[in-house]
């Protein structure tokens, strides 16, 4: 592993840990205003088993790949 690879991981990690300290931030969409976002029809990946299959099909039939699987977290609706 070269320094470039380390930097690509460490720098965002430092950013992540630094931002996690911003606990006094006042959200402009309050938790009690997120009922619609918590509706199942707003789930960005409601059926993971189906999404991974169809992405596999597209990767086999097209030359492009990636960019669709990084988000594993929720929407903060709960």
């Amino acid at each position: 592993m070269n320094l470039g690879c380390v930097g690509r991981i460490v720098l965002p990690l430092l950013l992540l840990t630094g931002l996690s300290g911003c606990s006094n931030f006042e959200p402009w969409v309050k938790p009690y205003e997120r009922a619609r976002l918590a509706d199942p029809i707003m789930a960005l990946d409601s059926d993971a088993i189906s999404t991974s299959y169809i992405q596999h099909v597209y990767e086999a039939r097209e030359g492009a790949r990636g960019g669709e699987g990084a988000v594993g977290g929720g929407c903060g609706c709960n």
Binding site: I9, G73, G74
Partner: peptide, 18 residues
Amino acid sequence: FAVSQEMFGDMTTLTLGY
């Protein structure tokens, strides 16, 4: 591997993956 962090009043989720 992936690590996710909710922040800014849980309005933002940042995810890093390898």
